[in-house]
Design a protein around this nucleic acid. Structure first.
Length: 425
RNA sequence: GGAGAGGUGGCCGAGUGGUUUAAGGCAACAGUCUUGAAAACUGUCCUGGGGCCUGUCCCCAGCGCGAGUUCGAAUCUCGCCCUCUCCGCCA
């Protein structure tokens, strides 16, 4: 959510920044609604002040056993006017809210121009894609042969887009989650949480997923709850509607949560293997910071995401995402991509975003610098640390051996009972 | 799921239709006192919105959430949510 006061005080700057994301024309409409709103507020508050004064008068007259009937009948009329104006104000307010909550965050100056992912700018690369001494296979062939992932039976259970990890595949998934959480808690200073998998509409709204992305989520209509599309949602909102005491920030939370996405509009895309699933595992990083520190925190979180892929020995690159590709709530976003030799593709495994005060304003997350200071909105950041399925793809395809077995990266071996290789026997 | 009790500022807690303009206390913050600290005393002390006379200013709203009754609602009515106790069911 953008600050209407900022739009009011500097409409040209907001228009310029929003137009980089294709929303420049919204500003004028917002300004006119804002004007209507303030006009109505003045009118209705005037009447309410009159009513309050009259109420006092009525109380006094009645106490002195006098006759207050003429004031009361006059106030009846005033009350009706108030009711009508209040209704009008509410409809303007709702319209303003609706328009405002639809707008994306303002992009930072350092975000490159562009309309889609093809305009993202590569800013770093760990090395060129390695060449294997044999023809690499795609992960679905290797995993099926090793009987560590059962695609057909996953679909039998929940439809396409759902998979069944088996044997050492299931254990490897578990190992990756534990390895990542341990790294973030012991080396990166995060506090571990394990959030609910379902979230309220208010929480979805707070992180910017509602109302715009309703169709992308699984909705449990009976209870009006949503399956989390990412742990970012519940973890960011842990302190929703709170004012954090001085000294609380920064807050660093990491957590695992299964992520659910309907992938509406992506039907038929990336249907093979693990690239795009309706349910996947992810370890998430979330920070709440003071406003002036959020861009430093963004760099820090990018480094932490990179630490994971480096520890696993993957080839990776970092993209500075363009204005047309950053998330709704983000003012700046980096993608980390890793190389999958079997697919011959870069795969996005982490998005690290600075959402500045966009989510904090929607979710009402504030802090005080001093015990008596005015509350200010925090800045929120989130980053995958990291997404599991594409990590699994890259792991299998990178460490595949000519005999069809897969080497286990050293950092994971303690989590795999000391095993060094996954083989079919 | 059933029955009962409850939800008031950071916390405790008073408040059953009109000086509640939310008492009182605790905590916090500033100051006085003190060699320093504590205690004591004095003051400050919720949030959001609007205004122009930009102020130690004025006004409006908020007592779980939402509707309603009324000239007027923390207080009365209805619906919902949450917490606690007991019962039922259950991993």
């Amino acid at each position: 959510m953008l600050d209407i006061k900022l739009i009011r005080s500097d409409p040209d700057a907001v228009r310029r920044r929003l137009s980089r994301r294709g929303y420049g024309e919204a500003v004028d409409q917002l300004l006119s609604l804002d004007e209507d709103r303030r006009r109505l507020i003045q009118q209705v508050e005037d009447l309410k002040a009159r009513r309050n004064a009259a109420s006092e008068e009525i109380a006094r007259v009645k106490k002195e056993k006098g006759d207050a009937s003429s004031i009361i009948s006059e106030m009846k009329q005033v009350s009706d006017e108030i009711k009508a104006l209040d209704a009008e104000l509410k409809s303007v307010d709702d319209a303003l809210d609706e328009r405002l909550s639809d707008l994306p965050n303002l992009p930072d100056e350092s975000v490159p121009d562009g309309a889609g992912e093809e305009d993202n700018v590569e800013i770093e690369r760990s090395g060129d894609p390695p060449s294997l001494s044999f023809e690499p296979k795609p992960h679905w062939d290797i995993a099926t042969a090793l009987d560590i992932i059962d695609f057909e039976r996953g679909a039998k259970l929940a439809g396409s887009g759902f998979i069944l990890y088996k044997r050492l595949g299931a254990r490897l998934e578990r190992a990756l989650i534990n390895f990542m959480l341990d790294m973030h808690t012991t080396s990166h200073g995060y506090t571990e949480v394990w959030p609910p998998y379902l979230a309220l509409p208010s929480v979805m709204y707070g992180t910017g997923k509602l109302p715009k992305f309703k169709d992308d989520m699984y909705w449990v209509t009976e209870d009006d709850l949503y399956l989390n599309p990412t742990a970012e949602v519940p973890i960011t909102c842990i302190h929703m509607d709170e004012i954090l005491s001085p000294g609380t920030l920064p807050l660093r939370h990491t957590g695992y949560c299964a992520s659910f996405r309907r992938e509406a509009g992506a039907a038929g895309k990336d249907t093979r293997g693990l690239i795009r699933l309706h349910q996947f595992d992810k370890v998430e990083l979330v920070q709440l910071t003071e406003p002036e520190k959020s861009y430093d925190a963004l760099e820090e979180m990018l480094k932490q995401a990179k630490n994971v892929v480096e520890a696993l020995g993957f080839t990776y690159r970092v993209l500075n995402c363009c204005a047309g590709d950053i998330g709704q709530a983000a003012s700046k976003m980096y993608d980390v991509e890793i190389w999958a030799p079997g697919l011959g593709k870069w795969l996005e495994v982490s998005s690290v975003s600075n959402c500045t005060d966009y989510q904090a304003r929607r979710a009402n997350i504030r802090f005080r610098r001093e015990p008596t200071a005015k509350p200010e909105f925090v800045h929120t950041l989130n980053g995958s640390g990291i997404a599991l399925p594409r990590t699994m793809i890259t792991l299998i395809e990178t460490y595949q051996q000519p005999d069809g077995s897969v080497l286990i990266p050293e950092v994971l071996r303690p989590y795999m009972g000391g095993m060094e290789v996954i083989s079919s026997s």
